[in-house]
């Protein structure tokens, strides 16, 4: 048989969709986006797959998690290895995910980025490192019209009884088909529970063209993992060291901001932080100096008796 293996895996009609979300609180929304689009694809007789990322498990509150879909006019022949390597569409259910995560990694030329945010596309672009292949960015305030749905049906095998697209998932799926006609909008509408929200996403998404011409697509070959890429095994060597291979600051949607004037040095924020972010340098002063591990849980602001700590949206800071 004369089979060109290289061509076999090119699959020109294959569309890859990757959704990023915050664990537990938005996991369902991420899954809803890819399920709604894959469902719509199957209604049109396309070949579809949708799944969640095993690498991101176990599912934890705030951890960046991903869900994927693949839609094609031809049978899907290539095997996926846990993730979409070259997404055509990337969706973020939370704006702060642009920080600390390489969300555009491997994107195909002319790719689309849809972000759930109140902010302007131009502002979001500031946080993206390499936009060479990004064709369009779209911003839509999905949280405004549909709340997040916290369910126990995270990525751990439970059933989901609440229906596809009852939360922000419907809005974002609507925005995706406006930006790129992967499937027919009416088929997405009939796949979601909250049709009104889906229509809102389609009508209201603010699309901005980023690039119209692209250099030749040469995805960097995947570097095999070496010993330096692996996290060190076992325990942390000393009390002064931190777990440098597991930075958790990119879990944060809101940042604690400390006001020295209001602080009475009661140390309640210090003792109640699960991630030792509040550093107790001297008995007189606690300080927020270790934000690279702050997951933004907000316990410190909650326990502060003088309201010296406030939680501010992470994207208000350009650092």
């Amino acid at each position: 048989m004369n089979l060109d293996v290289k061509k076999l895996f090119e699959e020109p009609s294959l569309i890859q969709i990757t959704t990023w979300a915050r664990g537990v609180i938005e996991n369902k929304d991420a899954r809803d986006v890819v399920f709604a689009l894959a469902n719509a694809g199957s209604k049109e007789g396309k070949y579809v797959q949708a799944w969640e990322n095993y690498v991101d498990l176990p599912d934890r509150v705030g951890v960046p998690v991903r869900a994927y879909a693949r839609i094609s006019d031809e049978p899907l022949l290539s095997k996926y290895v846990y993730e979409n390597e070259h997404p055509d569409v990337v969706v973020l259910t939370n704006e702060a995910l642009v920080k600390g995560n390489d969300v555009l990694q491997g994107m195909k030329p002319g790719g689309v980025l849809i972000v759930n945010t109140k902010r302007d596309p131009e502002y979001i672009l500031k946080f993206l490192k390499d936009t060479t292949y990004l064709g369009t960015i779209g911003c839509i305030d999905a949280t405004e019209v549909a709340g997040h749905v916290q369910t126990l049906s995270g990525a751990e095998g439970a059933t989901d009884a609440s229906g596809i697209g009852v939360g922000v998932g419907a809005v974002l799926a609507g925005a995706v088909v406006k930006a790129k006609s992967i499937v027919k909008p009416e088929n997405v509408l009939s796949s979601v529970q909250n049709e009104e929200a889906c229509r809102y996403g389609y009508d209201e998404v603010r699309l901005v063209t980023v690039n119209t011409t692209f250099p030749e697509f040469k995805p960097a070959p995947k570097k095999p993992l070496g010993p330096e890429d692996l996290p060190f095994a076992g325990t942390v060597p000393s009390v002064d060291k931190e777990n440098e291979k597991r930075i958790t600051g990119n879990w944060r949607s809101e940042r604690p901001v400390w006001s020295k004037e209001r602080c009475t040095n009661c140390l309640l924020c210090w003792v109640n932080c699960p991630d030792s972010v509040v550093v107790y340098k001297t008995p007189e002063a606690a300080d927020f100096t270790n934000l690279k591990y702050c997951k933004g849980c907000g316990i410190c602001a909650e326990v502060c008796p003088t309201k010296a700590i406030t939680m501010v949206p992470e994207l208000d800071f350009e650092d």
Partner: peptide, 20 residues
């Protein structure tokens, strides 16, 4: 609280939930 040692033997950089 002030009498507690400042040293941490369970350091940040773990994959537990925000607010665990």
């Amino acid at each position: 609280l002030r009498d507690m040692p400042k040293e941490e033997y369970y350091v940040p950089g773990h994959r537990t939930c925000a607010g665990c």
